[in-house]
């Protein structure tokens, strides 16, 4: 974990809307609202000047439409997956209720993205387009806090090559991180608990 020192950053989406858009909106709808949210979140992250784990809190969000979710969630995650991302940030969603989940899943699927989310009735899980093995690998990491690839393979009874690929995909999707020195993998939830 030498290269990545997580700085917990809690982002209250409804508060950001109030700050980024002139009118006070309790519902996250329309593309301009989503764009304003994305810009506000990016600004907060860039101002930190350090790698961070950003918590997107949906607990006060009543209505979330597809256009706003596309701008505020999917485009945000896609931007921070690119090599030219503006900062080193990882994202976790909290307070995701059943009224948000379908919308979030739909916009993630459109781009082939994944997101760690704490669902009201389930706890932490992965949303988005990952294979069953990738999900299993992530769940194994989530359960043990940290592990090297061989430990994950052994735990899941899978071949090392398949697990290597699955973990590489989790890193690319930025739902897990790997420490440079120990080569151990961490689910983002481990970083959240540590913070």
């Amino acid at each position: 974990m030498s290269a990545l020192r997580p700085v917990p950053l809690r982002i209250d989406l409804s508060a950001l809307v109030r700050r980024s858009v002139a009118t006070l909106y309790s519902h996250l709808v329309t593309r301009p609202t989503g764009q304003a949210l994305r810009v506000g979140i990016e600004s907060q992250i860039c101002e930190l000047g350090a790698p961070c784990l950003s918590v997107l809190d949906f607990s006060q969000v009543v209505v979330l439409d597809y256009s706003c979710a596309d701008e505020a969630i999917a485009k945000l995650l896609a931007r921070f997956q690119r090599d030219d991302r503006p900062a080193e940030a990882y994202f976790v969603a909290r307070g995701v209720g059943s009224r948000h989940r379908e919308t979030i899943e739909a916009v993630l699927a459109r781009y082939g993205l994944a997101l760690v989310a704490e669902l009201d009735d389930v706890g932490f899980t992965l949303l988005g387009g990952l294979s069953p093995l990738e999900r299993s690998a992530w769940c194994a990491l989530d359960a043990v806090e940290a592990a090297v690839a061989s430990e994950v393979a052994e735990r899941l009874g899978q071949k090392q090559d398949a697990i290597d690929q699955a973990l590489a995909r989790l890193l690319a999707q930025r739902v897990a991180v790997q420490a440079d020195a120990s080569r151990r993998y961490y689910a983002l939830t481990s970083l959240l608990r540590a913070g």
């Binding site: 519902h27 709808v29 593309r31 209505v63 979330l64 439409d65 597809y66 009224r99």
Partner: peptide, 16 residues
């Protein structure tokens, strides 16, 4: 209830 919330989403998308 969770599906009733989608009614507002439908209206929002149609109007947009």
């Amino acid at each position: 209830l969770q599906e009733a919330f989608q009614f507002s989403v439908i209206l929002s998308e149609l109007c947009q």
